[in-house]
Structure formats: C-alpha cells, structure tokens
Design a protein around this nucleic acid. Structure first.
Lengths: 118, 118
DNA sequence: CCGGAGGTTCGAAGGTGCTCGTACCTCGTC
DNA sequence: GACGAGGTACGAGCACCTTCGAACCTCCGG
C-alpha cells in the first residue's frame, strides 16, 4: 500500500485477479484509456486529458475500476489527478497481455486504410 | 452462417467485438473451459465432459456466450452437444490473445509457488 | 477573496449478467 | 414402449455495472 502523499490506494499486484483485469478491459471507455496510456510509453497523464464523452462522476467510477484492477496508479496533485500505467509490475504478472490487447485494438481502430484482413 | 446439420449459428468472425471476447473470458467458468480447449489442441469435446459445478441451464447460458463471442463452434449430435475452439479464425482476428490468456492462466493455476517454465 | 476547473461522494435509475428450478424436448438404451 | 442422460427455453431472483445529476470539496488564478 503506497501511502505516498496524494497516491491513491492500489492493490498488491499479486492480489490482482485476471478476471478483474479482463472485465476492466472489456469496457470500451476504459480500454481506450489504457490504449492511450500504452501508446504513451509509460508517461504520466492528467485524468482530465482524456476525451471521454461521459459525466465527471462516471469518470471517477472508471478510474476506480482501473485502479482496483491493478492497471493504473493514480496520483492526487493539487487541482487535478494524474494516472500512470503500472507497466512493469503488470507485465511481470500478466506477461504479454497489455501488448496483445493494445496491438489488437490498434489494428481495429486504424483509419481503415492500412487495415489488413476484414 | 454455417447451417450445417446440427451446427449452431455463430457470428462471422469479422463481426466479433473485442469487448465481447474479453467479457466472455472474464468469467472463471468460461475461462476454465477455454483453457481446457486450448490445452486440448483443437480437439472436439463433449459439452458434458466439463466438470462445471453449475446447473444445466446455466451451462447452456455459458455456451451461448462463448459461441456469440466467437470463441467456440457448437455442434448438436444426437443425444449430446460438442464444442470446438475456432482456433485459426480467432487467431487471425485476435492474434496472440488466446495464447497469452492461456499462458497466464496456466501460470496462475500452478501450485502458486514454483516458478513455472516460461 | 472570489470564481471556476477538476474530482469525489452519494443516491437513483436502467440495464445486464449469473444463477437457479421447472417444464419440455430428443435421442439412445433396455 | 418406457426411461434416463443431455440440452434447451422460460421466468424469476439477485447482484453488479454504467450512467447521470446534485451537492460538496480543494486547489489555482486573477
């Protein structure tokens, strides 16, 4: 439990369940967020910088789900909150999962121009 | 739409959504089944051969979910039904996903202490 | 000091998912 | 033909998920 200043509580990676992870990634909004984080290369991002077409309170809900599924770490900094993928930890516990999901999503989201088999 | 004798209707693989797949795999019972099928190497198996501790009607429900998520093909043969992974098709559309999930699950099922071969 | 942007909490509504029991069907077997 | 194993269809209960609005909080900037 990293009780660092502003750091929101997250589960021990060893306690994270694969079912919870898959459930978290099953939602389009959450998957889109994780996608951007993966493509962002481990950079920390402001929660407000994601163009999600949903209410504020719904966002808070989704951040909690992602946090409790062990996917992200969230930090409270003054007037805003920031998220960071738990890349290394997560990959150690679920090797290849993030990469595979990211690659598949990228292939499906592509501007239908370079999309292969269809 | 394979309307073969006894073949239950399944979606075109191109129409299968990643979210539906992840949802399907998020359930422990369904994941266990898929696991066994993956480890079974493409072999067809009787639906009744899975030791699921749930009611008959609940099984039917899970088979439908797996079918509609594009994961399995189901065949009605006389007094029983049989399932088969849509291995090749699925891998073409979601490369690596089954392998990754299978490997992670296998690692988690092991006696949780010994470092499994990786 | 005041306003607004960013977030959280709470409660509620609507939908979906997992579960079951019951009823019913279809084979294969005796 | 009767019976049982295997399955499906249907309805119900229950829990959870997603969504929202309203109220409230905390900062930063002017």
């Amino acid at each position: 439990m990293s009780s660092m200043p502003g750091e929101l509580p997250i589960p021990e990676m060893a306690d994270v369940d694969l079912g919870a992870v898959l459930s978290a990634l099953a939602d389009p909004h959450r998957r889109a967020v994780v996608l951007e984080l993966v493509n962002g290369g481990g950079t920390e991002r402001a929660c407000s910088s994601f163009p999600l077409p949903i209410a504020k309170s719904t966002r808070t809900h989704h951040w909690r789900v992602l946090r409790e599924a062990g996917l992200v770490r969230q930090r409270d900094a003054g007037n805003g909150t920031f998220v960071r993928l738990r890349r290394d930890e997560f990959d150690a516990r679920f090797p290849g999962l993030l990469d595979v999901v990211a690659e598949i999503s990228a292939a499906g989201i592509s501007t239908a121009g370079s999309a292969p088999a269809r």
